[in-house]
Design a protein around this nucleic acid. Structure first.
Lengths: 95, 95
DNA sequence: TTGACATATGAACATATGCTCATATATCAA
DNA sequence: TTGATATATGAGCATATGTTCATATGTCAA
């Protein structure tokens, strides 16, 4: 049953757009519109993606007036991305 | 461009069946038919899944006669699963 | 070689996913 | 309050994904 939860969280990470969003957030919190510009998708699409990331607890929101600042939720996200990068780099090197 | 590769590898991990396969393999190498029985899917489906895992370099094969023994490819796979489990457990605890 | 077993793969189908478009909600400035 | 801006969300569409069924390939025993 935990496998289901783990697969679900990997599923949220299984999209290049969302990886780019998390990359962008690794430098610190950012507003939705700035993230959209950085990543290169519409603000609507960004909102949809952020909802997924929020639901999966990969990011968290801090609201201030009419802005919403998103940030990485905890250190495990960083660890996961680092391990994934290391593995991907090794695969790439071996190929 | 690396984001694409990373997302692709997360995509391979984004399925409970494949997580169960990797779990099963964390105890050591296993034949296709045994894996199928353990995980509870047909041998055909298992073959398809193993091809995905093999292509993603998450598992490797050792062939011996008419059997094929599959095993986890490298330590990064273990690390990824461990981090994912830790994160998932924390989320579960917080919910 | 023949027949049985182990694994691999292609086609097809049903479901899931990410985007766009339209619209809703909320906050601030004038 | 009114208009502008920032974010959120529902519906719909096109594509991707996991399974089954059928079939192919390969190995061993008789």
């Amino acid at each position: 049953m935990l496998d289901e939860a783990i697969a679900e969280m990997f599923g949220v990470l299984a999209d290049p757009t969302r990886i780019r969003i998390l990359d962008a957030l690794s430098g610190g919190e950012q507003r939705v519109c700035d993230l959209a510009a950085t990543v290169g998708i519409s603000e609507s699409a960004m909102s949809h993606q952020l909802r997924l990331l929020r639901t999966a607890r990969l990011v968290r929101v801090r609201r201030d007036g009419r802005h919403a600042f998103y940030a990485l939720d905890d250190h495990h996200v960083i660890d996961l991305l680092r391990d994934a990068r290391t593995h991907a780099a090794e695969i790439g090197g071996r190929r």
